[in-house]
Amino acid sequence: MAEKIATRVAYGNTLAELGETEHFYVMDADLSGSTQTAIFGKKFPERFINCGIAEANMISVAAGIASTGAPVFCSSFAMFACGRAYEQIRNSVAYPQLNVKICASHGGITVGEDGPTHQFCEDLAIMRSTPNMVVVNPADATETTAAIRAILRYNGPVYCRLGRYAVPVVFDPSDYKFELGKGNVLADGKDVALFATGILIAAALEAREALKSHGVDAAVIDIHTIKPLDKELVLSYAAKTGAVVTAEEHTIVGGLGSAVAEVLSENLPTRMARVGIEDVFGTSASAEVLLDYYKLNAEGIVEKTLRLLRK
């Protein structure tokens, strides 16, 4: 098994590294140890701002800072950074197109034991429906590092979801390329296209191997940018395979599955299935147990794929 690193850890290290050459501010709301912004804070205290447990204020303060020209990274748990402060993101950041990056850790079900009040599985849907927002959901440490660099280069509002849970490093940093809005084809295939995002990338690659024994040749495509969606890539693989399965650590309402369904239904109606949280609140348990319980794993992807292909 590959080395395991949580995406939030890669985020914290990347910020601290970028801080040496780039001018930007980093804000947190009393969770800098968890979100890993503390690494930057320790190194560059004059550019770090702890707002205390006041996420709404944090987002609007970030808007004020960004209005003077400096990019700002804001972190907290996804539930609070995006959920609690949604209206501040919409009105103070997205509407005036300010250069604020909301990099929220502890997204999704893998928050684990803290339970449903902290397991935010709706963030990608909410951020995707907000005009002017770019929405990114990296899969591993390599992709996170590349994504954060690209996000800093991009001038405008971005939501980036990071995880608490240590996940396998899927991508080799030496040959990994990241471009906002462009998906990566990880494996070609002719029978079905598996579009996965975030930590479900590793599961999709595993599912591809399992599907071989059922005579199914699956393509695996990494959709790290949920918005803008790489429509051409979605359409080309739907055309090529005639069957699409999406996989995300997120509600099936409004996230990657919905985004792909929107593109297909209007341009190339294609049979499809969505792997994700089935419009329910989570429950307390370890991340490993929850991923199995909600079938956010290779088994879940294989099952839905075989049902879709009637195998």
Binding site: I49, N57, V61, A62, I65, S92
Partner: peptide, 14 residues
Amino acid sequence: GQGISAAAGMALVG
């Protein structure tokens, strides 16, 4: 409620 926070952000940078 949001404007005063943004003003505080501008003041902090200043």
